Amino acid sequence: MEKILVTTDQSENSKAGIRFAIKLAKQRKAELMILHVYHLLKPLKWTEETFARHTITFLEKNTVELSAFIAGIYKSINETQITYELIQVSNIDVIDGVIAYARKHSCSYICISTRGAGVLTKIFGTHTAKLITSSPVPVLCIPSNYHVKELKHILYASDMTDYERELAQVVAFARPLNASVEMMHISYPYEFTFDNELTEATLKKKANYEVTLLNRKRDITNALLQDIDDAIKFSKPSLLVLFTHQSRSMFEKLFYPSNAEDYSFYGKVPLLTYKKNERI
């Protein structure tokens, strides 16, 4: 059974990710795991025994608060409460704790809320950016102002390298949701233009799923992000899928153009990122 891990710090910002994870776990018949990463500092004068008692008291109190917080979210979306596991993990680094837990427990997806549009740290938040660039587990980034909707249409942005393997992963996500899949390629003027009808027939055969193709021409006067933004406005997807090279430099080339603050689609559309095959 799939496991969906969603993070929370009990903030208003984290509620969007939890709402999304609840709905997704129900649709996919997956296990839902809600994770809170904490770190307690031991006062120098305290004994180990005193600190251990303090930790137990903290966890008991936090469990009550987290349970009430999550119950309020279920009530707000009028959702019958499905079984979930509440986990609290100690780690000095929040994202290291999230990734370590997700890997150890073979989670299928990590879900996290983001803080809206702007430059890199404003688009994703420091934690989200680090998670995308570090996690071997696919990451779902949910805008904090996002209201849960049915996932009907998935847009997969492809650079056409290793697309068969990537498309198989996208289809594996889409199939249980019965969502449509559209593969987008933004081509430079010198690139070969695909025949849509022929390419779509090939994609359907390879993926064993209905896949449409969206060809868009690269406007070299724009940042790449602007071209992606324009394609999203045209396609109107429920979810955008990207495969990322997990290095800061590659990530910033895509998401940190000088005028990135003008692009707002990350504040509106959930994003699913997979680690790209680095051998390609």
Rank of each mutant, 00 (worst) to 15 (best):
R175P: 00
L151V: 14
N178H: 13
S113F: 12
F192T: 13
V171E: 03
L167E: 04
N145I: 14
V137N: 00
N145D: 15
A201E: 11
K104Y: 03
L120S: 05
L151K: 03
A172K: 09
L167V: 08
L155M: 14
L177V: 04
P143R: 08
S158E: 02
E191H: 09
P143M: 01
E164W: 05
A168F: 06
V137G: 01
S187M: 09
T133E: 10
N196G: 04
H127G: 05
H105V: 04
K152A: 15
E191T: 06
S113G: 15
K152W: 04
I154A: 12
A168G: 09
R175A: 10
R115K: 15
E166V: 05
T133S: 12
D195W: 08
E191Y: 08
G125I: 07
H147I: 13
K122E: 14
G125M: 06
T133V: 15
V181T: 12
A129C: 03
S158P: 05
A201L: 10
Y146L: 02
V137M: 02
E191R: 09
S108Y: 04
I123L: 13
M184Y: 06
H153R: 15
F173A: 00
L131N: 05
V148E: 10
P189H: 06
K152S: 15
T114Q: 15
Y156N: 04
I186L: 03
E197Y: 07
I123N: 14
R115I: 14
M160Y: 08
T161D: 10
L151W: 02
C141S: 14
A117C: 11
K130N: 15
S135H: 04
L140A: 10
Y156E: 12
F124E: 04
I186P: 00
D162T: 11
L167I: 09
I112P: 06
Y156G: 10
Y188L: 12
F192C: 10
M184K: 09
I110R: 01
L155S: 12
D195V: 10
A129H: 02
L140G: 07
F124H: 08
S113L: 08
N145K: 13
L177E: 03
S134T: 07
V170W: 04
T128I: 07
M184P: 11
